[in-house]
Design a protein around this nucleic acid. Structure first.
Lengths: 197, 197
DNA sequence: AACCTTACTTACTAGTTAGTAAGTGGGCAA
DNA sequence: TTGCCCACTTACTAACTAGTAAGTAAGGTT
């Protein structure tokens, strides 16, 4: 029966679905195997231990984000780039029944049940996203496209946390809440000539 | 051996610790039993099924939040109340090694693995917190203590999501990130007479 | 003194978990 | 054609999961 070429890739895809849907402790090798139509030992063949799979999952997310940042360099200005950042999260929201959650959200929630390897990758992913947002806000302010108080570093932390939190809360109370949150976040960041109140 | 009076209460306390630390799928009745020094069947005596325990956990959170809102009515003005809201989350952050996460965060992340009873309670908790924040922002704006664009409803969603997200992210990258985020959130909300840029 | 309830323990089930060891069949290289 | 490696399967283990049933000891009630 040897030789489906893409089993390893397929395992990663199914595992990612299950992971973002149910959490790391919410799925097993049997779930993956059944979904693909192989035996769970075959999953162990490609990823001997579950933490190997976990690390592979997070590392793929990092590579994906890195490629995404390269592609978005083509976009011009703060707002198109910021909207693109929102859009990748919206994809999670719209997926499947009930929606998935962003990888960082799941990783942080279950942080104490994952291996040190996974934690390290999770930390790096979080830092990379934060760095990207920080650079975006700095450039946006320099170009006069966005308005905020304090450091780019700090407002990037606010924006990142808001998007992550909004995505999770939307799971409980519905996706309308995500849009309400994002709209109001953007509203606060809009350039203001002279103030309200 | 009959008759420790507070076993049920003790189970709830230990379960809450484990829950916020490891997630709902990250602990078992055996973990609870071992921590207290009883047998896992004794846990089943008080909470027949795990979802009964789960619902009890969330309902207690709701009662706790309701009592908290009553107590904070005594505080005068937007900022003391808002700071009190931050403070309850800070408590989670400072707890134990690595910190816990707020209940909403865990519930949302594992939303698809919990029973409908738990989901209902989770939804209600989320709505209650959002309602409280909405009222706070409305009153704060009417009193001229806080400045934001859009609806109180929307800015409440932003603040709630930011705090929840920041708490989780702090798990991965350290608690300094929480303070940075909260400081900058507050900075945006501060009253402004005339604008920047 | 008899009995009932409460709060457990002991002992168990059936199913699932991650993980391993040994075997199997197809395809490719020498 | 022989032999080897890859990608699996079959068959298994040990530990753990939620959950149940039956027994037991203490304390209160009648």
């Amino acid at each position: 029966m040897a030789g489906r070429t893409d089993t390893k890739h397929e395992i990663l895809n199914v595992a990612e679905q299950l992971w973002l849907h149910k959490g790391y402790n919410g799925f097993s090798y049997q779930h993956i195997a059944k979904a693909i139509g192989i035996k769970s030992a075959a999953v162990h063949y490609h990823y001997p231990a579950k933490q190997d799979l976990g690390v592979a999952l997070v590392e793929r997310m990092r590579r994906r984000f890195a490629r995404w940042t390269e592609r978005t360099e083509a976009l011009d200005g703060f707002w198109p780039k910021f909207d693109a950042y929102i859009a990748i999260h919206q994809l999670y929201l719209d997926d499947g029944e009930g929606g998935r959650v962003c990888p960082s959200g799941i990783l942080d929630a279950e942080f104490h049940t994952i291996s040190e390897d996974m934690r390290h990758a999770a930390r790096e992913l979080t830092r990379e996203m934060h760095r990207w947002l920080t650079d975006l806000f700095r450039a946006g302010r320099d170009a006069g496209e966005v308005s905020f108080r304090g450091d780019p570093d700090g407002i990037a932390a606010v924006a990142g946390a808001t998007v992550q939190g909004a995505l999770q809360i939307a799971r409980a109370v519905g996706r309308g809440s995500f849009h309400l949150t994002i709209d109001h976040l953007k509203l606060q960041l809009r350039q203001r000539e002279c103030a309200d109140a």
